[in-house]
């Protein structure tokens, strides 16, 4: 009888034991990759940063993974590593490839995982294999379109990979790892203001128009009347396009919508 009377006390004690939290929670959310808002017809015309009239008819991007960090990268630490020293609060793995001019977002198949802490930094990994591998032949970005040069309108095309083709020929013998392949493939820091929550949706919006901000076009080689971006750092336009794809500012935007 005494035991029966004591039971509520024991129960209260047991329940009380689970009161409180260490803060935050673990969340799952959806994630998608999308082009710029309002672009739906596989065609977008704009004036580039160099003042050139460009019409894009194809722009696709493959993203290997997306991360969010609660800290801004520390320059010295970032010099050492492609993985930030702060705590990662969100990640989207599995990769996705999107046609950025279709207006149709593409879902990351595995969704995202994270914790409910505010993220201030975003990262995109533009890889298809091991981030640190010297070689990666995965085509990350593809572009096609037309540019109006002083000599007239010219079609152009190009595709970009980040492998040994981007490795600098002049390697400092004292710092052979300074130009690590992973640094070519990580877009960081993208400024974000997102607090993840269970069931929400993360949209990584990519504006391919900004890829051309520093592309002069005039130094591109021509193949059958088409200007071709080299998949290597051979001329300023090819370098400019690759730099545009991995530019942390002005290209990528992280949007969050609660469920």
């Amino acid at each position: 009888m005494k035991l029966v009377r004591a039971f509520p006390l024991v129960l209260a004690l047991a329940l009380g034991a689970c009161v409180g939290t260490t803060g935050g929670e673990v969340v799952s959310f959806g994630a998608q990759l999308a082009g710029p808002e309002g672009v739906t017809e596989h065609r977008v015309a704009f004036t580039s940063g160099r003042g050139l009239a460009v019409t894009l008819t194809k722009a696709s991007l493959r993203v290997g993974a997306v991360y969010m960090n609660r800290s801004k990268p520390i320059p010295v630490a970032q010099e050492k590593s492609c993985i930030s020293t702060g705590t990662y609060v969100g990640e989207v793995l599995g990769g996705a490839e999107a046609d950025l001019l279709s207006g149709a977002p593409v879902r990351f198949p595995r969704g995202g995982q994270g914790t409910s802490e505010a993220a201030v930094t975003g990262e995109l990994w533009l890889n298809g294999g091991d981030l640190d591998a010297l070689e990666d032949k995965t085509v990350v970005a593809t572009v096609e379109g037309e540019v109006v040069l002083p000599a007239g309108a010219k079609p152009f095309r190009g595709s970009i990979t980040f492998g040994s083709n981007r490795r600098s020929a002049a390697i400092d013998p004292a710092r052979p790892g300074a130009d690590a392949p992973c640094k070519q493939r990580v877009v960081s820091p993208v400024a974000v203001d997102v607090t993840l929550a269970q069931g929400g949706l993360l949209t990584v919006r990519v504006d391919p128009r900004a890829w051309f901000a520093l592309v002069p076009f005039e130094d591109l080689r021509e193949e059958g009347g088409v200007l071709v971006f080299d998949d290597a750092d051979t001329n300023a336009s090819s370098v400019g396009l690759a730099d545009g794809v991995r530019a942390p500012q002005g290209v990528y935007r992280f949007e969050w919508s609660a469920n």
């Binding site: 050492k80 590593s81 640190d132 710092r175 052979p176 790892g177």
Partner: peptide, 15 residues
């Protein structure tokens, strides 16, 4: 395979 960052002084390596 997480805490073997590529450092500038090191030769290229994966994790």
């Amino acid at each position: 395979f997480l805490h073997d960052p590529q450092e500038a002084l090191q030769n290229l390596h994966t994790q």
